[in-house]
Design a protein around this nucleic acid. Structure first.
Lengths: 352, 352
DNA sequence: TAGCCTTTTGGGAGCGCTCTCAAAATTGGT
DNA sequence: ACCAATTTTGAGAGCGCTCCCAAAAGGCTA
């Protein structure tokens, strides 16, 4: 019904040229204040929106960042709110940077080829962020062929040249968690790993072993059970560990720690008296269990924020790849480990 | 370094015209098989990607769907995995439909104007999906001025003409939950509401009241406490309800039910003996509490999937707005209500 | 008021694609 | 082998914007 709106039609109504309208839209300083206000008024009145496709065509910029979370459904969806937190951090930072966020979720194995073509289309996004890309993922090999700048959240496996990432020192954090249990006098310390296709999980396992070795304790494979970062797998892993009488447990995330706690309590163990538990992440669930979980806090939201900013810096050539950012972690002592602590953590109901 | 790739350059290399390459890319039937294969080979060899901006400019289609989750941070991020499930449903369906998903997360109050301009730009997305838009949200008024097709997940407040939505019958589901408690002999049934700016929460409150009235039970405002859909608020609400000695509780979602359960157990109540609890959603947490939660299951992923398909139908004029889709719910009986049940639900560790 | 410099404005070209229409090549029937 | 029908291909225009450059307008000094 209403004629189609473009720069030209706005220009005509405002009695100026297309170029001037363009300048107004792009906040160019080369427009008199009088003209700017007038054009702005017409734009408002006509409810005009510049065509982003036309703009992108000439500027070779879409102002869109792509986010890929290839994590399998049962981890993303489940009780583990690591990914929602990452997303929140990404979403907020990306919006602040005045970009839009294009998202691909879930397993991409089946339409791998197809998706990769979309992802690697340099005209769709200005850059990409990969979250927790498993090292056996089909996208892995294609990364090196990517033309666009990209940032990974969580350290990639092996030496991926040109890959920038944002992560934490998982190895050291796991050592700290395990050392804490050792310091509390535990000698049969078990570990529930995360999905071992994710480097973070491998590093945490490594850190756990390191700490045992450093303390002269044996690394007993019967005290190591594999999980996949969700509650269910933590519960199962603990069932499997219980016959080997652990007196301490370091779980690769809080969600699995909660599942393990459930299994331990069900088996009649007292926590922390009989079994000392330390988790990882410090997500909400850590404060909702009884007893609440001692854990390693990592800045999950910040990972997303930092990754987004880093990507934009990469896009604008303010820095050049690869960049590696390591964010700090912190041991948060609550009830599940049995250490007395009067300053940190707090219970479930006085959270900030 | 390498020359810029476009249709023309591919055409030159293949010894055909730009038009032919375009036809190949768009799967036009008007190309001989011989030519198609040849061109395809060149495209592959050169790793060519058509410029989406140029295509969008002429086709007036971006093949992008916008998803807006304006929910405040503490609900999206928290223990409640309603939104991740919605997202998973949306993400999968949108990918299957061969669209990309553009996302806006979190509160938009501050840069309201700015965001709305971006959202309503008809050249950025082909359509929009709003998830749980609170009725006091600044976007609410602007919905009627939207030119693009849009679909809401969860019923919008009031009579928004032209608004299509996908939801469930919250009113009836809440009645069923409450009736179940009544049937179990409970007489002092409490309710913890969701955020009352979301229509679903209002409907559930209404259904709760309806059921009480229908059973000749009084509606006691002291037995109604307001929550915001997260664990913390469920815990607090229960603390507030306990002095009024409820013997039953219907919580507007599982996460709050879990918080309430925590508070009840802490206060020394036995569940379900002293207090019968029914939740809503049937998310993972419902099977992880002890006792596990009786709840109303709603098809959360399906909401996302259906909304995406509906939006695409709207975009392609296969249906016309407004469309209202109501998905089915189901009462899942577990331990927290005290009803004996031998067929449904199961415990936390035998999930499907 | 003329002359110079600065600020502001306008017009043309072109980004890479799709679409329409016409031309060329192929097919089939006689 | 010829003409009509069909299939396949090519060229031109144009989508709505930005960018470059030149022209116009405005400000200042002499």
């Amino acid at each position: 019904m209403s004629e189609r709106l473009d720069l030209e039609s706005i220009a005509r109504k405002a009695g100026v040229s297309r170029s001037t309208v363009s300048r107004v839209i792009n906040d160019s300083p080369h427009v008199s204040e009088r003209t700017r206000q007038h054009v702005l008024a017409i734009i408002e009145q006509e409810n005009f929106h510049p065509n982003t496709a036309a703009r992108a065509l000439v500027k070779r910029r879409t102002d869109i960042l792509g986010v890929v979370i290839p994590t399998s459904a049962n981890v993303f969806l489940s009780d583990n709110n690591y990914y929602p937190l990452i997303l929140a951090g990404l979403g907020e930072a990306i919006r602040q940077l005045d970009y839009a966020m294009l998202m691909w979720l879930g397993e991409v194995t089946h339409d791998d080829q197809h998706l990769m073509r979309k992802l690697s289309n340099p005209y769709l996004t200005d850059g990409l962020i990969f979250v927790s890309l498993p090292n056996d993922h089909p996208l892995y090999d294609k990364l090196s062929r990517l033309r666009q700048p990209f940032v990974m959240i969580d350290r990639p496996f092996g030496e991926l040249e040109n890959a920038s990432y944002v992560s934490i020192d998982n190895l050291r954090a796991a050592e700290i968690a395990t050392e804490h249990l050792i310091r509390l006098g535990r000698r049969r310390i078990a570990h529930i790993t995360g999905m071992l296709t994710i480097t973070d999980a491998c590093d945490r396992l490594e850190g756990y072993k390191n700490a045992l070795c450093a303390a002269g304790l044996p690394v007993d494979s019967q005290l190591i059970a594999e999980g996949v970062f969700n509650y269910e797998s933590g519960y199962r892993a603990m069932k499997q560990l219980l016959p080997h009488r652990p007196d301490g447990l370091f779980a690769a995330n809080d969600t699995m720690a909660a599942g393990a706690l459930h299994a331990a309590l069900e088996a009649g163990l007292r926590v922390p008296e009989d079994l000392s538990i330390v988790g990882f992440d410090d997500v909400d669930v850590a404060m909702q269990t009884t007893p609440s979980l001692t854990t390693i806090r990592q800045p999950i939201r910040a990972k997303g924020e930092v990754a987004a900013r880093l990507l934009v810096d990469l896009i604008n050539n303010r820095v050049s790849a690869p960049q590696h950012v390591i964010l700090p972690t912190e041991l948060i002592i609550r009830q599940s480990c049995g250490a007395t602590n009067h300053t940190k953590g707090g219970d479930a109901h006085t959270a900030e």
